[in-house]
Design a protein around this nucleic acid. Structure first.
Lengths: 223, 223
DNA sequence: TCCCAATAATTGTGATCACAGTTTTCCGAG
DNA sequence: CTCGGAAAACTGTGATCACAATTATTGGGA
């Protein structure tokens, strides 16, 4: 296919490829431990290997993909209890911090936005729609975090979510989405509405802590 | 130049390019805010644009290089007090944690290694050799952190150092290396030798805290 | 001296090919 | 049926070219 992209203001192909692989990783469409290749990904996405190469470099740098140091082949990082523990600790530091900063800068618009996302999340949960639940959960957290105005920390959080993505799918695959009903989102929203910075921090910390604990149990059972 | 790389066990060209640019960034040979280009970097390093492209993708993902979202041009991220504050907070969480974990797994070999690096560091300081000091300082911290056996956290720390690199050069450029004489390395070594995990955490936290405060002052003065 | 248009140089992006190393496939000997 | 080795397919890497877009330069009219 020799079609050329005519304009530059449109998002570059390698960015679309990045997003496609990222989603496939998070939603578990590419299983952890599985090997992938530039050309196979390119064929699957109907693009040339070139933009895939760019996207993959980025994902490797973000540790969402691993590269075998000896034969240089690509694979999805395997899940390990050790990795999960480190990712949990890191999330448990960064994300409550982002939540606290966001709470300090929140307004009624943010509160309404979070409420809307959370009700969408509840509906997805009620319907048992795992994909929609995961999307809504991601949307909730990052709508909040973005308000913190902390670019560096936000990027760290994004990288951690990307690495944790495959773990989440394992949990859902094992126990189903219904186990995750109990979240602390309402608690967080209430704290944000009240301008309670430290309450928002605690609510998000509790939300994460409980979620990660479920993952820990699921992973331990899976290994 | 059409010379082909004959072997695959040797490090790939794009890795060498990555390391070269990384070093140039950390040591401040490429000034913050300055624009760079694939072809100029390639010419400077006497390689084709291709491996540079790979290395740059990686550096952008690690936020050691920035990419203008409108004209897609590359530049070195500018220093800002806000960015420094976030990087400081992140380092102040990750690195003491790594130090603590390393202290729990330390042996006499590590202690000797750290002592050797630290005496090299002191000599560099005495000679006023900034490059050597920075290399030794990096070596000290990461010789310690690697012992933690925490790959995820170690990678986070590495990324943070890369982002903080340009800031360090500003400090040295302004005040000279002699200001940084007072570090907490001896304190940290002693804690590690004694198996005092929390002491190691505190020593590294103090070391970082003092260093970052100096950077903060320097950056504030520079802006 | 100043300013604006036209040209030239430079930029990131994508496609395609070449190459060497590794992995898989496959077929025939035992 | 099993095993081993040769051939084929596939892998990441690097070079080179094309293209559209942006930036720099230059020249001439006011």
């Amino acid at each position: 296919m020799k079609t050329r992209r005519p304009l530059a203001d449109s998002t570059a192909v390698h960015d679309q490829v990045y997003e496609a692989i990222r989603q496939a990783l998070i939603t578990g469409r590419i299983a952890p431990g599985k090997g992938v290749s530039l050309r196979s990904l390119a064929a699957e996405l109907s693009v040339s290997p070139m933009p895939v190469r760019d996207a993959v470099r980025r994902l490797v740098a973000e540790r969402a993909l691993a590269i075998n140091p000896v034969n240089k082949r690509l694979s999805v990082p395997s899940l390990s209890a050790d990795r999960l523990e480190q990712l949990s600790m890191a999330r448990l530091w960064v994300e409550p911090e982002l939540a606290a900063r966001a709470a300090a800068r929140a307004d009624t618009g943010l509160v309404r936005q979070l409420q809307a996302i959370d009700s969408d999340l509840d509906e997805a949960l009620r319907l048992g729609d795992v994909d929609r639940y995961m999307a809504a959960n991601h949307a909730f957290h990052f709508a909040l975090y973005e308000r913190a105005g902390a670019e560096v920390l936000l990027a760290m959080a994004g990288g951690l979510w990307l690495q944790i993505g495959p773990f989440m799918r394992v949990v859902f695959g094992r126990v189903g989405a219904d186990v995750l009903v109990a979240d602390r989102h309402a608690e967080a929203i209430e704290a944000i509405r009240a301008g309670d910075v430290d309450g928002a921090r605690r609510a998000i910390a509790a939300d994460l802590s409980e979620g990660m604990e479920k993952m820990r149990v699921a992973v331990e059972a899976a290994l």
